[in-house]
């Protein structure tokens, strides 16, 4: 997997993505500044493209960080209670602030996401039986417990409808003015790049990190914060995208190894490509209608996940 080809593929898919849709927009329309076509581009298509790329990169890198610091290939924001905690956070913020501005929602869900992830990391520390499959199962169980709390209160308060809108990741609602929060994850991605080496070292264990003079706890906390923040940003703007943080890093590390300095760029690119591909697919299959992205990612992702599991057991 050469970086060049990945970038080329990403550009290609981006172009395709921008020109797919119910409204026909041709290149000539845009070049001649035809009002309608340009509006569609600027208000809907390009925001959608950007949010897909940012979310794809963000979720994949979150998964990569989680897998490194938890030393387990099957841990990701959706199997470590991060996503479910973020969702609970959104519910709480809707209860606390009647206005529930996106920024409020984000902050509260971020706090919950961090708390949930740290809780999972604490449980992880205490588990003596460090089996590769067992640990993500614990994470999924913890996530489900948190999720049931969310559902319970949502039922009580008659908010099931709005809750389920975050359950399913969907890019069709993305228009100008509704996705800009996602930009916050770009500086976070930069921090992740700068910390790549430290995450790898932390992934080799506390003793190993201490020997090299690295502050293990700080690196883990930075990692968890990045993951929690990106997850809550994505869940608020796009919704829940399953499997992405799990399979993308796994596929990339098969080819690139576990040295994060060397695989983080590939992971980001591949994550964006994978999500963009799934989105395009979802938009063509039942054209002019759309299949939500969580469904296409879920189906393709679960197949790949199964293949990975079978491979891993050999």
């Amino acid at each position: 997997m050469k970086k060049r080809y990945l970038i080329l593929l990403l550009i290609l898919l981006s172009i395709v993505s921008v020109f797919i849709g119910v409204k026909d927009v041709s290149l000539r329309d845009i070049l001649s500044f035809k009002d309608e076509g340009l509006q569609v581009m600027l208000l809907s298509r390009i925001p959608r493209l950007i949010s897909i790329i940012v979310a794809g990169m963000g979720m994949s890198i979150s998964g990569l960080i989680m897998q490194s610091i938890s030393r387990n290939k099957f841990v990701s924001p959706s199997t470590a209670a991060t996503m479910d905690s973020a969702k609970l956070g959104v519910l709480i913020s809707l209860l606390l602030f009647a206005s529930s501005k996106p920024l409020h929602k984000m902050l509260v869900s971020f706090i919950f996401a961090i708390a949930g992830t740290l809780l999972f990391m604490q449980i992880l520390k205490r588990i003596k039986f460090q089996n590769a499959i067992f640990i993500p199962l614990v994470g999924i169980m913890l996530g489900n417990i948190i999720d049931s709390v969310t559902t319970f209160f949502a039922y009580k308060l008659n908010m099931i409808q709005s809750i389920s809108s975050w359950l399913q990741g969907d890019f069709s609602m993305i228009i100008k003015g509704r996705y800009e929060l996602l930009y916050i994850s770009i500086p976070l991605l930069v921090v992740a790049f700068l910390y790549a080496n430290k995450f790898t070292i932390a992934g080799m264990g506390q003793d190993f990190a201490a020997n090299l003079g690295l502050n293990y706890n700080r690196v883990v906390n930075v990692g968890v914060s990045i993951v929690a923040l990106i997850s809550s940003l994505v869940i608020i703007t796009v919704g829940r995208i399953p499997f992405l943080g799990l399979i993308v890093p796994n596929i990339v590390t098969i080819f690139q190894g576990d040295n994060m300095r060397k695989n983080i760029f590939h992971t980001a690119l591949f994550g964006a490509i994978f999500l963009l591909f799934c989105d395009i697919l979802g938009r063509i299959i039942i054209y002019p209608y759309e299949i939500p992205i969580s469904l296409t990612v879920g189906v393709i992702g679960s197949v790949i996940f199964l293949v990975l599991l079978v491979r891993g057991n050999r």
Binding site: R71, T200, M204, G205, F208, T253
Partner: peptide, 10 residues
């Protein structure tokens, strides 16, 4: 320390 159990691909 004894670190032969490391499964990291490096």
């Amino acid at each position: 320390k004894q670190s032969n159990h490391l499964s990291i691909k490096l």
